[in-house]
Design a binder for these strands. Structure first.
Length: 403
DNA sequence: GTCAATTCACATGAAAGAGACCACGGTCTAGTG
DNA sequence: CTAGACCGTGGTCTCTTTCATGTGAATTGACGA
């Protein structure tokens, strides 16, 4: 047993890797120069430049689909500005905060606490009143006499969960500060969320607006080529591979992150199969694997109640070919809870859970009206048959196991 | 046949509760000098 | 006298329940042609 394992490792080491530097294809990597974003970089730089002269720049709102380089570009500019301000001793700070990260900055308290922490203050994760944290933050900011640019990535998530008063409060802070100013740079991939915003908040948030258009297939190709050159050994990537990756990603609103992931996973698959090169067919496999891993990961990390709901949907769909409705799911769910010793939730909650499963893309739930026979959600499964079997198995195991 | 009213089966919203986690300040207790 | 243990109070946060209101079209039934 150990012998074969040793053998395997040795073989692995002997083999030459396809990768020169895999990290260059990973999401965390920040390239030296950003392709096809010169206009946006220039625009943002112009808008933020006054802060280097210790004036307050306009608030800025950046919008663009996922994988269009919003975050990358702003971080790039922020780094440049920080470098400059460090060498020239300009009192400027730029905080980058991702509002989507759960348990980091997705509520008002946590956002302000995070800001105070960036200034080196110890703030407990809970226990203090929000006002108090505000005061701590304000005091330190005021004492440092600094201009602050606050980059709020995925700001739509924050506002969705915590309401728009936060932005209002943050902008209002400026009138209370004598020595410092706060500028908000909001990043979002969902433009429609501004529609339900308080008009005052909306206008103050988007004093300036920049849109990041999706990359087209040609642009994606040049991005991929540049990265592939850095990350793979020469001659590894076969003709047509890059083109296919970009075509796939361009089809999905020009998501560069996805294109890079596709290429990386294709590389990993090729390596595991002990191939010398990456073939076009590896990309199809990569696409499937990414999708599969994503769903399995989602399903496994869901709470029991979600799993029970999903399992109910599976079971009913097994008997009934076509679509099913909320009421049926709830009935089945209740008996299932009895079976596995779970405390059943109310229908109200299950309705929400079905909505969330829809958001996750595991099911398709469309609200339809049956006229006289009421209004309900029409539920369909959004998984390939192969994946369906796999996920069913996972659910079965998870539901029957204790805790 | 037409048209408005009715009706169903939930969807959707708002508010409030439960329970976990935590900080802070006050009080009690045991150990120390 | 003092450090540490141990409350009680008040705070946030997530998940959930409770109560209330909304909704789209099939059905119904009155009405007139």
């Amino acid at each position: 047993m150990t012998k074969t394992l040793n053998n395997l490792f040795e073989k692995f080491l002997e083999r030459k890797s396809l990768f020169k530097d895999k990290s260059r294809l990973q999401a965390a990597y920040h390239p030296q120069n950003i392709l096809h974003r010169n206009d946006q970089i220039e625009l943002i730089a112009k808008i933020l430049a006054p802060s280097l002269r210790e004036e307050k720049p306009s608030n800025l709102f950046i919008y663009g689909k996922t994988g269009t380089g919003k975050t990358l570009t702003t971080q790039y500019i922020a780094n440049q500005m920080m470098e400059l301000s460090n060498t020239k001793k300009i009192p400027l700070k730029i905080f980058y905060i991702n509002c989507k990260l759960r348990r980091v900055a997705d509520t008002e308290y946590r956002l302000i606490a995070q800001l105070a922490r960036e200034f080196g203050k110890e703030i407990p994760p809970t226990g203090l009143p929000t006002d108090e944290v505000y005061n701590i933050f304000l005091k330190t900011l005021e004492s440092k006499k600094q201009n602050l640019i606050l980059v709020l990535d995925e700001i739509d998530q924050l506002i969705h969960k915590a309401g728009d008063e936060i932005i209002y409060n943050l902008t209002r802070i400026n009138s209370e500060l004598k020595n410092s100013k706060i500028t908000i740079l909001g990043i979002s991939n969902d433009l429609s969320f501004t529609n339900n915003l308080d008009p005052r908040v909306k206008s103050s948030l988007s004093e300036e607006e920049i849109v990041f258009p999706p990359y087209n297939a040609i642009q994606l190709q040049s991005i991929l080529k540049a990265r592939a050159k850095e990350s793979f050994n020469q001659g590894v990537v076969q003709q047509g591979v890059i083109e296919k990756c970009s075509a796939y990603a361009a089809r999905e609103h020009g998501d560069a992150r996805r294109a890079l992931e596709l290429l990386r996973v294709a590389g990993e698959i090729a390596e595991r199969n002990q191939q010398e090169t990456i073939n076009i067919t590896d990309i199809d496999e990569a696409e499937e694997k990414i999708e599969r891993d994503r769903f399995i990961d989602i399903v496994m990390t869901q709470p029991k109640q979600f799993q029970a709901t999903l399992y109910s949907i599976f079971e009913i769909l097994k008997k009934k070919k076509d679509s099913i409705f909320t009421g049926e799911v709830y009935d089945y769910y209740k008996t299932l809870c009895d079976h596995v010793g779970l405390r059943p939730l109310t229908q109200r909650r299950i309705s929400d859970i079905i909505g969330e499963l829809d958001m996750l893309g595991i099911i398709n739930a469309k609200v339809i009206s049956h006229g006289r026979f009421g209004r309900t959600r029409e539920i369909k499964l959004a998984l390939s048959p192969n994946l369906k079997i796999k996920i069913r198995k996972i659910l079965e195991e998870d539901l029957l196991s204790p805790n």
